[in-house]
Computed example of a mutant assay.
Amino acid sequence: MATTVFGHRGIPEKYIENSISGFKYLAEHGEAVEFDVHLTKDLIPVIMHDEKIDRTTNGSGYIKDFNYEALKSFHLINDVNREQQVGKIESIPKLDDVLSVFNDTQIQLNIELKTDNFDYLGIEQIVLNTVQHFHFNRPVIFSSFNINTLDRLYAIDQSLNLAYLSEQPVNDFPHFMQDHHLNALHPSVESLQGGNVVQRIWTVNDDNVLDKLLDFGVAGIFTDNFVHAIKTRNCRG
């Protein structure tokens, strides 16, 4: 099967990362998407990569310290050039805002629960409760660097498609995956593992690396420019 290309936080090469504009573009032109979920102080799931809003908004502080109404007062910025605002002014999106973009589409979703630094209490059930209000034509992938998060997801629903994120190779990964009821590994480029296991690799923005992973036949890659990656894959026949 062809390697699935996931738009990493939308398409940061074209739109501000994790913006509704970027997600809408991906919904029309892409095949799969990855984004990260945090919880606000009042337990609203929102989409952002970092625990702090400093890099990608005009504000400062930790997401967990803001109620959502306060968080709405800030807007997303282009972190490559903080003086340049690309497109319309956009707020930090809620999880249900993003899910609405992909509702009833063929897009494969990968929702990362961002619990590697802050293990947000109850985030697993909150995210699942939100997802159940939408319809997706492909099973949603839930991923995390925090194995306890994945264990809690499995305890809630044994049918979930779970993937473990890792910056380092996983020792004895067949048993690790079995013990934690995992469907896939999501290693960094440097941690690609051999063997017959579903792997989706992050973050692939180099053409030489992309070619090697396509040759290897990995299940998926995460990239900041999904348009280029899909074109490269498809041109290989």
Rank of each mutant, 00 (worst) to 15 (best):
S144V: 04
L160A: 08
N148I: 15
Y164C: 03
L150A: 12
S159G: 10
I141Q: 11
L150K: 04
S166T: 05
I141A: 12
S143I: 04
L153A: 06
N146Y: 04
L162A: 07
N137K: 14
F142G: 03
D151P: 00
T149Y: 04
Y164R: 01
T149H: 05
N148D: 10
L153Y: 09
L160F: 11
L160C: 09
A155V: 06
T149P: 02
A155T: 01
F142H: 10
N148G: 05
L165D: 02
Y154E: 04
Q158S: 09
D157L: 07
V140K: 09
A155E: 13
F145T: 05
L165N: 01
V140A: 14
V140Q: 08
Y164P: 00
Y164H: 00
N161Y: 02
Q158D: 10
L165S: 02
N146H: 07
L165Y: 02
S144I: 04
N161E: 05
S144T: 02
I147H: 11
L162V: 01
L153Q: 08
S159H: 12
L162E: 00
I141V: 14
N148L: 06
N137E: 07
S144F: 07
R138S: 07
Y164S: 02
Q158H: 08
I156G: 13
R152L: 11
F142Q: 04
S159V: 14
I147C: 05
I141C: 13
L160T: 10
F145Q: 10
S159P: 02
R138F: 14
D151G: 12
L162M: 00
S144G: 14
F136P: 00
R152S: 14
N161C: 06
L150P: 00
R138W: 10
L165A: 03
A155D: 09
R152N: 15
S159K: 05
F142C: 09
R138I: 13
S143C: 06
S144L: 15
S166E: 05
N148F: 10
L165W: 03
Q158L: 13
S144E: 06
S159R: 03
I147K: 03
Y164I: 00
I147L: 09
P139S: 07
F142W: 11
L160E: 04
S143D: 02
I147Q: 03
S143M: 09
S166L: 15
N137M: 03
I141L: 15
P139M: 07
S166H: 06
A163G: 13
T149I: 11
R138E: 08
N146Q: 04
L162C: 08
L153W: 11
Y154P: 01
D151Q: 15
L165K: 00
R138V: 15
F136N: 05
P139H: 04
F145P: 01
F136E: 03
L162T: 04
V140C: 12
I156A: 12
Y154I: 03
D157N: 07
I156F: 12
I147W: 13
L165P: 02
I147R: 03
N148K: 07
L162F: 04
Y154A: 08
A163R: 02
F145D: 06
F136D: 10
L153S: 13
Q158W: 15
Y164Q: 01
S143Q: 08
S143K: 14
L160K: 01
V140L: 11
R138Y: 10
A163H: 04
A155G: 13
R152V: 10
Q158C: 10
N146S: 09
F142M: 14
Q158Y: 15
F142S: 05
A155K: 13
Y154F: 12
A163W: 00
D151T: 12
